[in-house]
């Protein structure tokens, strides 16, 4: 009888920690000494995916840089809920300037660190999807093009949540927002619009681009670590559900992020110098309806009569992602 090496760990590497994993295989988040870059007392809504994503990403970056990190933040939920005078939740040096200029401000910080001979201090710029794909797009593209030494992180919750859930260029088709109401013959956000920012970032040929979700911490932390191993412009697009803006239960935040990945709605991959180098495979395939039904922003698609035609289009988009990135696991992946 052949002996097999023990490689299986109850919750394997899916859970945050797991006492059975070696210390090196555990996440930063499992460490009691993690930075908690964004600390308790912040005013994010219950179940905020962005607050979680920011802590995940920045704590990982803090570990990788041994605490030599500066964060630049665009205006938006993350900024507002973290720093209302007189209280800040940030435990790391942090600067907020404007909504649309975080990438450029980050460039300035990086330039200052270099000129001061403090190259070990690394810079992270961060924004929501509005601050990234819309108003901050110009400065972001400039930062990419110059290959400035900045990791820019977009926490994508698919709309302008801070101002009351309006549409952004990251809002998915059919989703109801305050400016794309679920009325008329084409309810919600129109099809055929929006920006695929990770691919735009790749088109700049920058060293590293990756997508991730708050549902897969190991993947997210590994990507932050990978990103920090490069100098130059890097981009991380993190999918962060918004219970308030999506009309979802606050306890479903991670569940929704997981479903977004498992349905193919949000492809999780990474790219170096413009070429896709890795894809996080779907583990438990699910139809898009599993994901859509949990969100009131899609409520108009269900019930009677509902819009099965629209659901089918969304399923087709997910299927296209699955085909494009090869998201389904094959025998060799097992």
């Amino acid at each position: 009888m052949s002996e097999t090496r023990v490689h299986f760990y109850q919750v394997g590497s899916f859970a945050v920690g797991n006492r059975l994993l070696s210390a090196g295989e555990r996440t930063v988040q499992s460490d009691r000494r993690r930075t908690n870059s964004i600390d308790s007392g912040h005013r994010a809504c219950q179940g905020c995916g962005e607050a979680l994503g920011a802590r995940y990403a920045l704590d990982a970056a803090m570990r990788v840089t041994s605490g030599q990190l500066v964060a630049v933040n665009a205006t938006g939920c993350l900024e507002v809920f973290s720093t209302p005078f007189p209280e800040t939740s940030w435990q790391i040096p942090w600067l907020h300037s404007l909504f649309g200029n975080a990438p450029a401000v980050a460039t300035g910080v990086a330039a200052a660190m270099r000129v001061k001979g403090r190259d070990q201090v690394r810079v992270v710029g961060q924004a929501g999807d509005g601050g990234t794909v819309d108003i901050g797009f110009g400065t972001l593209s400039g930062m990419f093009e110059r290959n400035d030494d900045v990791l820019f992180i977009c926490y994508d919750n698919e709309g302008y949540m801070n101002t009351g859930v309006q549409r952004s260029a990251a809002t998915p088709p059919a989703a109801r927002t305050a400016t794309t109401d679920a009325v008329g013959p084409e309810p919600g956000n129109p099809f055929g619009q929006g920006k695929d920012l990770p691919r735009i970032a790749m088109a700049h040929g920058i060293p590293y681009v990756a997508t991730a979700t708050v549902a897969d911490l190991h993947d997210l932390e590994r990507k932050v670590e990978r990103a920090m191993s490069f100098h130059g412009a890097r981009y991380l697009h993190v999918f962060v559900p918004c219970p308030l803006g999506w009309g979802a239960a606050s306890n479903d935040t991670i569940h929704l992020a997981r479903l977004a990945k498992e349905t193919g709605i949000f492809p999780v991959y990474e790219a170096e110098y413009g070429e896709v180098t890795g894809v996080t495979k779907i583990r438990r395939p699910a139809p898009v309806t599993d994901y859509l039904r949990l969100q009131r922003r899609y409520a108009h698609l269900f019930g009677h009569p509902g819009r099965p035609d629209v659901v089918a289009r969304l399923q087709a988009m997910a299927d296209a992602n699955i085909a494009r990135y090869g998201l389904l696991a094959t025998e060799e992946d097992e």
């Binding site: 859970a15 555990r26 988040q29 499992s30 991670i254």
Partner: peptide, 8 residues
């Protein structure tokens, strides 16, 4: 003690 609650 999988640390999930601590992490999430």
């Amino acid at each position: 003690e999988c640390d999930n609650c601590f992490g999430v």
